[in-house]
Design a protein around this nucleic acid. Sequence first.
DNA 1: CTTTGAATGTAGCATAGGCTACATTGTGTG
DNA 2: CACACAATGTAGCCTATGCTACATTCAAAG
Lengths: 158, 158
Amino acid sequence: MSYVISLSIVFVPISIATMATGVDPKSAARRHERVRKQHSDELAQDYVEAIHELIESGKPARVTDLQSVFGVSHVSVVRALQRFEKRGLLDRSSGDGVQLTDLGRKMATEAAARHQLVVDFLRKLGVSHAQANADAEGLEHHLSDESLAALRKFVDGE
Amino acid sequence: MSYVISLSIVFVPISIATMATGVDPKSAARRHERVRKQHSDELAQDYVEAIHELIESGKPARVTDLQSVFGVSHVSVVRALQRFEKRGLLDRSSGDGVQLTDLGRKMATEAAARHQLVVDFLRKLGVSHAQANADAEGLEHHLSDESLAALRKFVDGE
DNA sequence: CTTTGAATGTAGCATAGGCTACATTGTGTG
DNA sequence: CACACAATGTAGCCTATGCTACATTCAAAG
């Protein structure tokens, strides 16, 4: 079998037919592929965000601290940190807790800004603070720039 | 337009202290745990939704069809279907394509309603149809009942 | 009737992300 | 000093999701 893989990640507007039905296979495949990519970055963003928050509040970001933030075993934390260190997001060589690289810090501040925007947005929609925070944790990784801009516009008074 | 909103999301209360700071480790752990649970159900919902759409539009839901919907190899589809069959969501014993069980159909219609609500909501915020559909794919799995109700209120004229 | 191509399934491998069990190391206290 | 506990790391196992390569089956075409 020979596959002809289309590398056209070019922007292709969804056809009228698709817009109505939502069942066009090609665009559906593109959407699902995008979600898979988002997932592969979610944990990294959550980690750098948590590490950033700890450091900003004067506390070291140790394995134990992250373990209680994420509610997983210390082993899962260690292995996640190993992966993210390989990806150049953080540095575990210094003594007390992990440090973020410039790249990690950039990712962290962007993630924090997105998170806050989503929380503010949900609050303005009338969602309780607790639920807004909880939902933002899942939502923040799946918003396009276009949707983020729309949320911002709404939050900033519409 | 009226929506049938899923009532299936677990309610997790969050303490007042948490609400203020957002950094309380225990509530953070609860939030992250909830997101992990949502992830473990995402693919199942996407599959039953896709299968339901195919069947509703008169086409059989075969491995090949789902392969092109999700943009993965046929092997990934087969193994996903095996898992979901074990979970009682679908039935592969009948001849032409998979069938949904009652449970699978219920999950599919709820997921479809959520998806449509998110799309309509983003559209009302000014997001393009193409991007609204794309973003909804990721967002729809991470909204609490409370947030879904807020979205519906906004869509229905506020 | 044979060949061929599409659909489906299996075998086996990779990575991400969970886990428990065990080893090491450092620190503080009886 | 020695024992104990907390923090960290490693070994090894699990499931979910991807993949390629190979096997089977069936229908359509020559």
